[in-house]
Design a protein around this nucleic acid. Structure first.
Lengths: 171, 171
DNA sequence: CCCGTATGGTCCGATTCGTATGATTCGAAC
DNA sequence: GTTCGAATCATACGAATCGGACCATACGGG
């Protein structure tokens, strides 16, 4: 049970499990797709391997159904819970980038007017999606709601930005 | 010269090269660090391998110094230029995520007030950096300027968001 | 009981990552 | 004009990730 390498993926699994335990990786996958993956996605196969890794490290407990599909069912152990809490409590300076393919093309000299309509549309769709979620679950947990609001704010920003470029077409 | 797999990394190299050719991978690395990597970074070793790959595919021409360090010096070929233009011209629907470690923690229930100060500070620093770049190069190419403005807008948004949570401390 | 579809999970080659390290050049000191 | 350290330039390579393809089980309807 040496201290395992912990990545964002690890904490995503721990965090999801806290919301849903006991759960199979498949359960987590479903939950994730309706939530975190909207702003931080990982390939679904990672969930399976990460569960195994974390179980090996003693942060998760693994049970198997003894018949049928023999699914693996996970719960948090005390040290899993502890790791999650420690991560949550520790503020962070580490930053990520707001990567956007449209902006990358723009940077390298693409024609703004040519890019803009598709970008507006794509970001509008994302925004609609977020707002639908917000409307559907008005009683969402505080943290999720805030994360969602942040997502909405960014999408609005993208739309504002690209809309302006779209209007600039006439130049 | 089979059609090579083209990734964002490929276009970053092509785009940088267009700005700086003829150039060594090292030159590109330097240029990138002062520009694109601010919003779309890749490990520097990738630049070396990507140059070789693209040269193998006929999109770049490689010359080597014949003495000393025997550096590889690259220029775009006609088909390299063509690939870059095609990429730029083609609008895109593919989206990326705005990943932010703070938001991830928030989502999983971290205490907003505990996270906020560090987040405000980190994003403020990033914003200052961007604004310094904007001030230093007022005559930046159109595309870069727009990309930078987008970055600035997003950083402001992050700051607004986290500042509000910071104020909410009293609850 | 058979088949089609949905569910649940794994495999594995290809790619990417990033640390560690190696090699060349340059300049300043003596 | 040689030695040393720092800066420049570059690669090697093991570990981690990626994601498409595929396999297995369950379930419902005819």
């Amino acid at each position: 049970m040496s201290t395992p390498r912990m990545t964002e993926t690890s904490y995503i699994v721990l965090g999801l499990l806290e919301l849903a335990e006991p759960a199979t990786p498949y359960d987590l996958k479903g939950l994730a797709q309706r939530s975190v993956f909207n702003f931080w996605s990982i390939p679904h196969t990672q969930i399976y391997t990460e569960c195994q890794r974390l179980a090996g490290a003693g942060l998760l407990e693994e049970k198997r159904e003894d018949s049928g599909r023999r699914r693996r069912i996970y719960t948090l152990t005390a040290s899993g819970r502890e790791a999650l809490n420690a991560w949550r409590a520790e503020p962070t300076h580490r930053m990520y980038e707001v990567r956007d393919l449209g902006v990358l093309k723009l940077f390298f000299g693409a024609d703004p007017a040519q890019l803009a309509p598709a970008q507006v549309e794509a970001h509008q769709r994302k925004l609609d999606e977020f707002e639908a979620i917000a409307a559907e679950f008005p009683e969402m947990p505080e943290g999720s709601r805030l994360a969602l609001e942040m997502g909405i704010a960014h999408e609005r920003e993208f739309i504002r930005f690209w809309s302006e470029l779209e209007k600039g077409k006439r130049d």
